[in-house]
Amino acid sequence: MSKQLATKFGEILFKNPVVPASGTFGFGREYEAYYDLEKLGGLCSKGLTLEPKPGNSGIRLWETPAGLMNSIGLENPGIDAFIEKEWPHLKELDTVTVVNVGGKDEESYLQAIEKLNAIEVKLIELNISCPNVKAGGMAYGMKAKTAGDITKKVVKLSNHPVMVKLSPNGDSVADIAKACEESGALGISLINTVQGMAIDYKKKAVVFDNLYAGLSGPAVKPIALRMTHQVCQAVKIPVMGMGGISTWEDALEFIMAGATCIQVGTMNFVNPLAPLDIIDGLQAYCEKEGLANIAEVRGIF
């Protein structure tokens, strides 16, 4: 393990701060053909819901300048199938598997969380920020009060530490993060995708069946960096920053803004080896700058 990159997120040890983001990494299997997942600091599972979800109809992807809009709609096999088919494989990996959980209402969040109590998850990422589902999803993450309420109930029920994944689309993200912190969250991750819209003028039609969709990729990075900074200023719990990170330099900027770990999302689609390139780049940076640990440059603004 690299001494320079080893990172504690709360009490959880990550061998490095680089974590592929939920929804861009499946359950890891697709990327195992490209590299050893144990090189990663951790990985976030595809967003799971209590029941299997088929996802949204119609066009699900739309490219924009330096960005990608998606309207996948949390297609996933459900918690039970995950525990049965994916967890036996993931739990053997020497990396931190973060299990991402979504829901359509309070009951479905809590039932999913209860089922996860049966397995040895190191960290849950509570998704209250998906812009692509009609019920639940982002609705809980728009205001500090609702975000704090659901976090409190989930934290109380869960045997595992809970990190809350926040939306850039709601009220002041710092206020929402503070409410999650006060409700017992171990950490915060942000940002989920930025809600956007696409229109096909030739067809005089909206592109997505769900009308709006989530924008990610390099196009959103400055927004994500600003929000990561605001949240890091507002809370004492650790933060995983994400949003358009495509190079080690981007990752370093998020760490300098205060992020403890960083997540790599859309870039996994562009270059399957992106997380490894970022790890290597951060390692080389630490060596060049003579840092004992990357933490020396964390939160310097």
Partner: peptide
């Protein structure tokens, strides 16, 4: 289909089949 990753991770190219959702790419 529109694809982002081409390897089965993004679920952007899902198509409905009689066996449930399948990925066009994978």
């Amino acid at each position: 289909a529109h694809m982002a990753c081409g390897i089965g991770a993004c679920l952007g190219c899902t198509c409905a089949t009689k066996y449930g959702n399948r990925k066009v790419c994978q």
